[in-house]
Amino acid sequence: MGRVNATQQHLLDLHRAAGLSQPAPPPPGRHDRSVLRDLYRRLRRPGASSGPGTPSGPGTPSPSGV
């Protein structure tokens, strides 16, 4: 068999699960939205983009308090 796309693979998995009396697998892409949302939240977390060596802005105390 050649390459199959996600829909074809899902149909094969459905057929296999039905033949084995197992529950149907979730459709492809079902959890994409939650995965992308979690990734976005992780990247947008406060302080995630500012690392060591980032200059402090005016009026912001330095870590040493001086």
Rank of each mutant, 00 (worst) to 15 (best):
A17C: 15
G19I: 04
P58V: 06
R3N: 14
T60W: 09
P23D: 04
G51C: 14
L43F: 10
P52F: 07
P27R: 15
G47K: 00
A17V: 04
P23I: 00
A17L: 07
R45Y: 00
R33E: 13
V4G: 10
T7Y: 04
S49Q: 09
A24K: 15
R44Q: 12
L39K: 12
P61R: 15
S34L: 13
Q22M: 13
M1A: 13
G65C: 02
T54G: 01
P28S: 08
D32G: 04
R16V: 05
S34Q: 15
A17Y: 02
P61M: 10
S21D: 11
R42H: 07
G53P: 03
R45H: 02
H10E: 02
G53L: 05
Y40M: 10
S62C: 07
P46L: 05
P28L: 10
R45K: 13
H10P: 05
G47R: 05
G29W: 04
S50C: 05
R42D: 06
D13C: 07
P25N: 01
G47V: 04
R16P: 03
R45V: 00
Y40F: 08
L14T: 07
D38N: 15
V66A: 12
G19W: 01
P46S: 04
Q8A: 15
V35N: 15
L39M: 10
S21Q: 09
R44V: 06
S56Q: 11
R41N: 08
D13Q: 15
G59T: 04
S56V: 06
R41Q: 14
T60C: 14
R42Y: 07
D13N: 15
S62N: 13
G59F: 02
G19Y: 01
R3T: 07
A17G: 07
L12V: 07
T60P: 03
R16H: 06
P61D: 08
V4N: 11
S64V: 06
G59V: 09
T54V: 12
S62Y: 15
T60N: 13
T7M: 09
Q22P: 04
P27Y: 06
G2Q: 14
L12I: 10
A24R: 15
S62W: 15
P25D: 01
G47S: 02
R41E: 11
S50K: 10
Q22D: 08
P63L: 00
L20Q: 13
A6S: 10
